Amino acid sequence: MTATKVIMSYPWKSRTEVDGSRQGSCLRDEVKAVAKRELREDDMIRRQAIQQFVEWILKNKDLSDCRTDSNFLLRFLRVKKFSLPMAQDMLLKYLNLRQTFSHLLTKLDCFQPAVAELINKGYLFPSPIRDANGRKVVIGVCSSFDPYKYSNVDMAKVHMMTYEALLEDEETQVTGVVHVGDLRGVNMAYVSLWSPAEFATVFKWGEHSLPMRHKEVHLLYVPAPLKYVYDFVRGRLSQKIRDRFTFYATLEEMHTKVDPKTLPKEYGGVIPMADMIEQWKQELLSKRDRLMDLDSMKLLDNSCVMKKDRNNNANKKSDISNVTGSFRRLDVD
């Protein structure tokens, strides 16, 4: 009961997170101020952009059963600061990503046994308490993932399910997400779950295809022997995202940058991790049908997306070769 009082009284708690209803554009005043300042969003721009976006989708013969509700379209418009051409391009990339890696990113069912186990164990979950800037804090506990029991498919589905569910909340679309990862126990078994080519492509495409505002990435207890992998991951991302990575050797050091109140009690917060996980399970359950319905959207022709990707990735083969070499060095180390 105490935890509930803390959650409900926190000033950045979203209306939809409190009452569970789906919102249109009912952002609170403080969130509207962020949207105006950082995204150039106001009522007129939002209405016009959504209308033009819907018209474009309905006329686009390469799209089938694409969502046209404002909640879905706004996540692309907001991450691209209401540049309609860039938002349209990102939507195409998003659908192409889901279809290209359908084994990883579709059928996001929280009832799948392996996925359900990872959620129950707290492999990845958001804190119910937002930080002082209104951002969602997503917590990953790598020790909850057994690389000898679970696959890269299980890993990817949990991540994609988490991000898709978070994007259903418009305040999170505006304020963005902070990532906190406890990497204790990570070893080469985690890395060997992925082929270098697939690992490289998912990371490289993911930043440009998933409409999320990644504000900060805080990594705790990063194993030194895996520095090649983390250098590779950061190297596949834009400089903007790369600059938002921070590494910590101790929990106390991380508390200087991450508000402990947003973390589980086990990490210096006030709400037990089990309570956070249980609340997240209920939220995923309430959004299960909506997440499953994403699979009905289709990109019938991805030639325009792939042409741009080929033009922007002339050195792709060289990049993959370098990654493979790094993975081999890890085996030696």
Rank of each mutant, 00 (worst) to 15 (best):
G206L: 04
R329D: 13
D169M: 01
L74W: 00
K281P: 05
N315H: 12
H159L: 11
D319H: 14
P147N: 11
R213Q: 12
M8K: 15
M273C: 15
T324Y: 07
E252F: 03
V6M: 08
V18K: 09
V217W: 09
R135K: 15
L284G: 02
Y123K: 13
S296W: 02
T100R: 08
Y94A: 01
S143F: 10
Q173Y: 01
I241F: 07
L285F: 07
R67I: 10
L263Y: 11
F111Y: 12
R40N: 12
A165P: 01
R310H: 06
R98W: 11
K81R: 07
Y94V: 12
P260I: 07
Y10P: 02
L219I: 06
K287W: 06
S238T: 15
V31I: 10
A165L: 08
N187T: 14
A3T: 03
L330V: 14
P11M: 14
A189R: 06
L73N: 05
Y228W: 09
L193I: 10
L166Y: 13
R244E: 13
Y228T: 15
S70I: 01
L95N: 05
T262H: 02
A274D: 14
N315Y: 10
D42A: 06
R310L: 09
E117P: 02
V186Q: 12
Q88M: 03
P11T: 03
S195M: 01
D231L: 03
R288L: 09
M90D: 00
S70G: 02
K32S: 03
V153E: 13
M292P: 03
Q99V: 06
Y163N: 06
Q99I: 04
N133F: 09
